[in-house]
């Protein structure tokens, strides 16, 4: 059960959220101009990064808003959550200290 920081509501347990997949995937403005391969890439191909991953969450059982998060997929630690439309923040360089729950 992760603790997720909703940019609107603060720290809430994972069970209040739905996962929204990879973040910053803009829907192509003119899909008819894409060939089948490019369209398939938009539909199905995802980065699936080992490490810091930009993804979306929705606070379904809370404010109902979508927002973005940077999560390390190997440790499940979030380095940031930020509102829809905001730029992906540059993560701080790791200090080597043991992480705290607030991270």
């Amino acid at each position: 059960m992760l603790v997720i920081v909703c940019p609107y509501c603060g720290k809430r347990p994972e069970i209040e959220f739905s996962y929204g997949g990879e973040a910053h995937l803009a829907r192509p403005a003119h899909p008819s101009e894409l060939d089948d391969q490019a369209w398939a890439d938009f539909l199905y191909m995802r980065s699936n990064t080992k490490g810091l991953y930009a993804e979306r969450w929705r606070h379904s059982h809370g404010c109902g808003r979508f927002f973005n998060a940077l999560r390390d997929t190997t440790t499940d630690h979030f380095t940031a959550t930020y509102k829809t439309g905001e730029r992906q923040p540059v993560p701080a360089t790791p200090t080597g200290a043991a992480p705290t729950v607030d991270a």
Binding site: A26, R27, R58, S60
Partner: peptide, 12 residues
């Protein structure tokens, strides 16, 4: 949920 997804994140 699908409607909210497009409303909030695509067609602002």
């Amino acid at each position: 949920a699908m409607m909210e997804d497009y409303r909030q994140t695509e067609w602002t």
